[in-house]
Design a protein around this nucleic acid. Structure first.
Lengths: 137, 137
DNA sequence: TTGCGTGCAAAGGTTTTGCATGGCA
DNA sequence: TGCCATGCAAAACCTTTGCACGCAA
């Protein structure tokens, strides 16, 4: 088994920096591409996709698939380590991502495993619905 | 104000009939197209998409998007009562989508709404993890 | 120097759309 | 007979991939 030695490139650094600077916001690949092309240090589309995929694999960026037809959304994950015991609720209206600390999460996990044989990876699952603010409208 | 008078076509009838005959199963547009092309009464891809969109608007078919890049899935919408206990679990290893009927789902919904103010849209949420078969390996 | 990362362009796949034709009412 | 629905093909998208070059280590 070989350990990979990833290079630290300018593009990777600036991309991560951009995502980190906007916590709680989601961006499509196209939006990110547009952002950097506006500046004087452009980043190619392929690189954006490749780096985003890497970030997602490393767990520092979360990927969503909304039904808007605009493609996938990516969002910086603040506390990646702690998020394993969180609920992730995405409001379909305002797009806000809500982190819920909840003991019932473990109950659901246990239930799925015992009764349905399914080993749930809570960290990767997003609950879609309406947040409280949007629900009241 | 004019009331629209949708025509009842052979394609629409057979398409709905096919979906209705496989409750609890999901199909991509490509799979549906393949199914009908195998027979002697083919249905064009554009028609499939147009009819599916109509069914979704009418609420008799549900659409949901996976992160696999295989496109959207469509599924016949059963009775409202049964829909409350509808789970979608996606195995991250073998890619299988598991359909779970489970009464506990409603408990989770209630919990999220009462304790966290989040109106969960269970039908659009996919639980990622490992299915029983893959877990045992 | 080594070989991973980048950028461009091309390919791949899904979904939408224009337009002439077919078929339901 | 009206006019919606269909089918084909092309277009519009989003995303991935091949390949030569650039650049980090």
């Amino acid at each position: 088994m070989t350990t990979k030695a990833p290079y630290r490139t300018r593009q990777q650094r600036e991309l991560l920096q951009y995502l980190r600077a906007t916590p709680g916001m989601h961006h499509t690949a196209a939006e990110i591409h547009e952002h950097f092309n506006g500046g004087e240090r452009p980043i190619g589309m392929a690189t954006i996709y490749r780096q985003l995929e890497r970030f997602v694999d490393e767990g520092i960026v979360r990927k969503y698939v909304l039904e808007t037809g605009d493609g996938a959304c990516y969002e910086y994950e603040q506390e990646a380590d702690e998020c394993l015991s969180h609920f992730h609720c995405k409001c379909e209206k305002c797009g806000r991502l809500i982190h819920l600390e909840c003991a019932d999460l473990e109950e659901i996990r246990t239930h799925l495993l015992r009764h349905h044989g399914f080993d749930w990876h809570a960290g990767k699952t997003v609950f879609y619905g309406l947040c409280e603010a949007c629900r009241r409208e």
